[in-house]
């Protein structure tokens, strides 16, 4: 097995999920997060998820202990020196991701793989200023990353074939279905799924039907959730931001124009399930 240890930047929901997926390949995992609280939460979350797997009979208690024994969190950047495979899962801020990769390049070998879990930023733009940009590629997981089967793998303009193959192999060893996508805004999923939300919002604006009717009709065709239920679940702030970022990245292409209705929900703080109200009330 290549890359005995996987280094993950960021201990949020995505970082934890990716950590579990990597741990279950039999590798050691080192998660870097600058914040003590985040590290504590990440440890508790990983422990809980692995415990749940034991309860469901998917993992023995011994296996869980072994997996947890291979899991470590750190707030000390210098401990990442010598990493061979890094996956960043920090917030979607280009400057933050660039800085972390640049700093890592200074303490890691020139062939260390730098994979980014970005859902919306350009891999080419991210890699351009980093020493040896041929080792940078996109590796986009879906939440919860330890359960969701798909990983989008994105070569940027500088990505070498060796890097691409290493990332594809890592995804496959994690039990994922890896699909390759060109480095374009939204890659595959976030782009093709956009009309599911945007067109539903447009129909609501035009009063073709109310949100509950649209949801009922879509569910009748085999979708687990209608678009408004799903937007409430995702959070309108998150969903609106993805749409806005695609709209900007495609230079104002009308297909991605954000909806006034969603903007108003965000401005009102009615973000969906997490605030108790969105299109539906959860209070």
């Amino acid at each position: 097995m290549t890359h005995q240890t996987v280094t993950i930047l960021g201990g949020g929901a995505m970082g934890r999920g990716i950590a579990i997926a990597a741990l279950l390949t039999g590798r050691s995992v080192l998660v870097y997060d600058a914040f003590r609280n985040s590290r504590d939460r990440a440890w508790a979350a990983v422990e809980k998820i692995l415990g749940g797997m034991v309860d469901k009979g998917k993992l023995s208690a011994e296996q869980r202990d072994r997996v947890l024994g291979a899991f470590r969190l750190t707030g000390e950047f210098h401990e990442l020196a010598g990493s061979s495979f890094v996956i960043e899962a920090v917030p979607e801020l280009m400057d933050l991701k660039r800085q972390l990769f640049t700093d890592l390049a200074g303490i890691c070998p020139a062939d260390t793989i730098f994979a980014s879990n970005t859902s919306s930023l350009s891999i080419t733009a991210l890699s351009a200023a980093i020493p040896n940009p041929e080792r940078v590629a996109g590796m986009h997981f879906f939440n919860p990353a330890h359960l969701m089967k798909l990983v989008e793998v994105i070569p940027g303009r500088f990505t070498s074939l060796e890097t691409l193959e290493a990332v594809l192999q890592m995804a496959e060893e994690m039990g994922k279905t890896a699909v390759e996508a060109k480095d374009t805004p939204g890659f595959i999923v976030n782009r093709i799924a956009r009309p599911f939300y945007n067109e539903a919002l447009r129909m609501l604006e035009e009063n073709v039907a109310d949100h509950a009717t649209i949801d009922r009709i879509v569910r009748a065709h085999g979708f687990r959730m209608g678009p408004f239920e799903l937007m409430d679940f995702i959070g309108h702030d998150v969903n609106y931001e993805v749409t806005r970022s695609l709209y900007d990245a495609f230079n104002g292409e009308p297909r991605y124009r954000p909806s006034q209705i969603q903007r108003s929900l965000v401005e009102a703080g009615l973000l969906g399930r997490k605030t108790g109200r969105g299109f539906y009330s959860y209070e």
Binding site: E152, V189, R191
Partner: peptide
């Protein structure tokens, strides 16, 4: 709703962002 999703998927295919198999797997699995 579906025709707009299909139109976007066909554009993704046309632009070579991903092949047919990748598009279908992506939308069913993710």
């Amino acid at each position: 709703l579906m025709c707009m999703i299909v139109n976007e998927a066909v554009l993704v295919l046309q632009q070579g962002v991903a092949n047919e198999d990748a598009i279908e797997k992506s939308m069913t699995l993710a």
